[in-house]
């Protein structure tokens, strides 16, 4: 009950705000969204232009095991590589893997979730079974096993391995949503007009699930970055790949932790945490922004009640 109380109550002002002053201004009012966009934007910028300023970040230097200094902002590794350069250049591959694996996982979940949910019947049952099976298999061990079997552990195989093990939860969410939307009157109205199935799914149903899809994508991206870091840390990634996870792996291998070289593992670790937090903040901010409006459509009665007539309460 308390949950419904709060959700219904936020509708009135949110709706008013969206109508009154445009989505953009409402978006700018969400501090979480702004903070998240700033963090992620910073890393994207880092990933795009950063590598241009550094030659080969794996270049071996003469200054080894050095702490942060003016010459080496983040210090150096056991073989004299500049950690700052590695961190900046590592942002690109990390983001690429996160974005690509997240995208593939989301596409798969959209096809299986929305497709199955709309098709119904045995197609739906089969796809639902598939996603349930995929869901109960513990993901990271599976990634480890698959990654161990795939000999080439470069960028693309990593992306696919992570994507194909992380779509199931989101497919389930989308299927549930589709099951509820496909019987709504506006979908029936499209059917009664004789709209082709693909149009009903793509134009009438999918836009209504866009907020969920975006949110699932952001989560999939976080998962992919963490999964890649995990794989790299376990040594299941090609050492040629330069990601934050790989930097962590080399730091671990050189016993940076026990020898006190904190500057080696702290920057990539913090970057991963910060990027994850930034993506999560965007997610929460979007949720704040979009969900009240969605709920307005789903519950016309609640909407009217919240707008002018009262609040939901237990006695």
């Amino acid at each position: 009950m308390p949950a419904t109380v709060t959700t219904q109550l936020v509708e009135a002002p949110a709706e008013a705000a969206v109508r009154g002053s445009g989505v953009l201004r409402t978006a700018l009012r969400s501090r979480r969204l702004i903070a998240g966009l700033c963090i992620v934007g910073f890393f994207v910028l880092l990933g795009v232009v950063g590598p241009l300023f550094f030659g080969n970040p794996n270049l071996v230097g003469t200054v080894q095991h050095a702490g942060p200094s003016a010459a080496h902002w983040f210090g150096t590794t056991d073989i004299g590589q500049d950690v700052f350069a590695q961190t900046v250049v590592g942002a690109r591959a990390t983001l690429e893997i996160g974005a690509a694996a997240g995208l593939i996982a989301t596409v798969v979940s959209v096809v299986i979730g929305i497709g199955g949910g709309y098709a119904g019947g045995w197609v739906d049952e089969a796809l639902a079974l598939l996603s349930n099976v995929a869901l109960v298999i513990p993901t990271l061990p599976l990634v480890i096993v698959v990654a161990a079997f795939v000999k080439n552990t470069g960028l693309l195989p990593t992306v696919f391995v992570i994507a194909l093990t992380s779509w199931a939860a989101s497919a389930r969410v989308l299927r549930g949503q589709t099951l509820s939307i496909r019987n709504r009157d506006y979908v029936l109205a499209s059917k009664a007009l004789g709209e082709p199935v693909w149009r009903i799914v793509l134009v009438e149903i999918m836009p209504n699930e866009l907020p969920i899809i975006v949110s699932q994508y952001l989560f999939a991206m976080i998962f992919a970055i963490l999964a890649q870091a995990g794989l790299a840390f376990l040594g299941l990634q090609s050492p040629d790949l330069l990601t934050w996870g790989n930097t962590l792996y080399f730091a671990q291998n050189a016993q940076a932790l026990s020898s006190g070289d904190w500057w080696w593992f702290a920057p990539p670790g913090l970057c991963i945490a910060l990027l994850g937090a930034g993506l999560a903040l965007i997610n929460f901010g979007l949720d704040e922004l979009l969900n009240p409006r969605l709920r307005v459509y789903r519950e016309p009665r609640a909407r009217r009640a919240a707008r002018a007539d009262g609040t939901e309460t237990g006695q």
Partner: peptide
């Protein structure tokens, strides 16, 4: 009143 950017005087 319902609070909001423009309060609704219900």
């Amino acid at each position: 009143e319902y609070a909001g950017s423009r309060p609704t005087r219900a």
